[in-house]
Nucleic acid binder design. Structure first.
Lengths: 344, 344
DNA sequence: TTGTACGCGTTATCAA
DNA sequence: TTGATAACGCGTACAA
């Protein structure tokens, strides 16, 4: 009766019939506009627009053997303070992917093995063309497993602990340079006892940051004793570590994370080390919203640029043309801040 | 020569030929195991496993006219402190979707119009079967636009300001109940001057939370004057608002967000209102990592349950069977905390 | 219970 | 420049 049976989306044939041309011509207007006569092109383009026609992703994927999708594991926001960096990265990656005609397909996983397993399932079903790995750790098992499965991927994070640093494409931020910049800045402020608050050795990222600090404080007296490692990346642990550093004579602290810095700033206040300029003599890492809110200086990671680089390498990886070089190290920037009035 | 031409993934035909059965049998083993002879079923299943075969998502999507994908806009982490709730929700949603055979397809957008436009493109191309809306605001334009475009969707957030509360499926958390629980808890602690720190009227979410507080402090003297609204959802604004409330005599504060609470806690400390039990007389909202780290009491939203509910409604929406009811209001829980030692 | 035929929407190839 | 044909991998109605 008055029932519109199905909305039944328009297809190439719909458009073609409507105009009395072949569907191939319509297809060409979309994928190869150059070879089609301008007049017909206009006519077809108008019809396409009028009908609101979009090429079927399934049909196209079936034909081209590409999903234009990128698999990405979303970690559980366990910390949340530092997790903010991953947030920004995911957003930037989704943005850049969109710009290039790709999109992000999310997955969740229990652990690394589960992640690889799920990526493999998605890849074998043609749901994704490649994967992006984040949070690469020392001797990460995933790169080898993905390579063996024949799944193209790009890592956000260096291949820590691998003999061949260019075994696979990666993008990373030079954490050492960030810590070094922080320590140098504190030196310029006149400090000569600059401590480092980080994690135990063996974490790749953590070691890198400590090394940067060590480089920048070289030559200062007693710098060797001013490095403290705590187990948890948590403000309370940061507070304890900071107390220890202050006991050892530190008047300024470079932290491996904003979580630690958040705990440290309270100890500096208690110890009367904040100074009259309202600049807390400490530097956090990741430039998280908490740091911004409190007015803590922090090292900012260029995640947008990282996302762009990751996607460039990703496209290379699936295109299989000459790669634009397997590894890219981006430079972070130090963001000095004055402590917010309410946090002094 | 020694070149393996292409890896060329296995298909139904590959498996069928290998076993000398028809491709249909293989398909049935996957989609309709019941009608296939147990012996052959075993044989086929084994071959499938051996070959690591996965049905082509494109082929299946083309045939079934379903992508099994859900479109979700990822907001830019502008605040980051409160953004943590969205994080958890996205993760939970991805998790639950996976469990049901769906997956999340991310998109980014400039604004609501852009979001709808992009969702429409994705939907028309068959890249997604439906959308999930988050952060619904007062008189949100998106529901009507999506409905007009014929795109099924579920909202995480009530249809604020709409005459018909069941115009579309939604899931939300009862913010008013959360604030009320917070205020009641502070009353139990002996407070009789409990302030509310929130945003100007008209924001749906904010009004809801204020109403809950008002309900719980009814009967207390001067409660009407103890409500303050600040423009920014930022700790510094929270600090100012808290100072004002304290000036007006408040000894405890219910906040509309953890961002505001973070700013408020400092003022309470300065005013000497923290007390000896190390329980800060304030309640934040969203139970973010910052609240956990500092030991601020906060209202916890059951995002995992929300994700489950959203997905259930989503499946209903695309299946077009009898819906399980358009709206669901979930109850939050108050998480009382003792202030962390380093934050006192 | 198993096999055959067809169509889902697209693009590549080739002929006109 | 345009159009006809084939094939991508799968699900389903139908026949055997």
């Amino acid at each position: 009766m008055s029932g519109q049976d199905r909305p039944s989306r328009p297809t190439l044939v719909t458009i073609a019939n409507e105009l009395g041309v072949s569907r191939q011509t319509v297809s060409n207007v979309l994928n190869n506009p150059g070879i089609v006569h301008p007049a017909t092109r206009e006519r077809v383009a108008a019809a396409i627009k009028r009908a609101g026609y979009r090429p079927s992703a399934a049909g196209r994927a079936l034909r081209t053997q590409r999903s234009m999708a990128i698999g990405l594991r979303l970690y559980r926001a366990v910390d949340g303070i530092n997790g903010a960096v991953m947030d920004r990265f995911v957003h930037s990656l989704a943005d850049e992917a969109q710009r290039r005609g790709y999109h992000l397909t999310l997955l969740t996983a229990e652990d690394a093995d589960d992640e690889v397993r799920k990526l493999e399932t998605l890849f074998r079903s043609g749901s994704i063309d490649l994967a992006v790995l984040t949070d690469t750790g020392m001797d990460d098992p995933r790169p080898d497993q993905l390579a063996e499965a024949g799944i193209p991927f790009v890592a956000f994070g260096r291949p820590w602990g691998r003999p061949d640093p260019d075994a696979h494409p990666w993008v990373d931020v030079d954490g050492g340079a960030g810590s070094a910049a922080g320590a140098s800045w504190l030196r310029e402020l006149g400090h000569t006892a600059i401590g480092f608050l980080g994690w135990p050795e063996g974490s790749g990222v953590g070691d890198d940051r400590r090394a940067g600090w060590a480089r920048a404080v070289a030559g200062l007296p007693a710098s060797a004793e001013l490095s403290v490692a705590v187990l948890d990346d948590h403000p309370s642990a940061g507070a304890e570590g900071a107390a220890e550093l202050i006991t050892r004579g530190a008047t300024a602290i470079v932290c491996a994370s904003d979580s630690l810095a958040l705990g440290a700033v309270g100890r500096l206040r208690i110890a009367g080390l904040l100074g009259d300029d309202h600049i807390a003599p400490l530097v956090g890492f990741d430039d998280t919203p908490v740091a911004r809110a409190l007015g803590m200086s922090s090292v900012h990671q260029p995640v947008e640029a990282a996302a762009v680089a990751v996607l460039e390498l990703a496209i290379d990886a699936v295109s299989a043309n000459g790669s634009s070089g397997p590894g890219r190290l981006l430079q972070p920037t130090l963001v000095p801040r004055q402590l917010a009035a309410f946090a002094r």
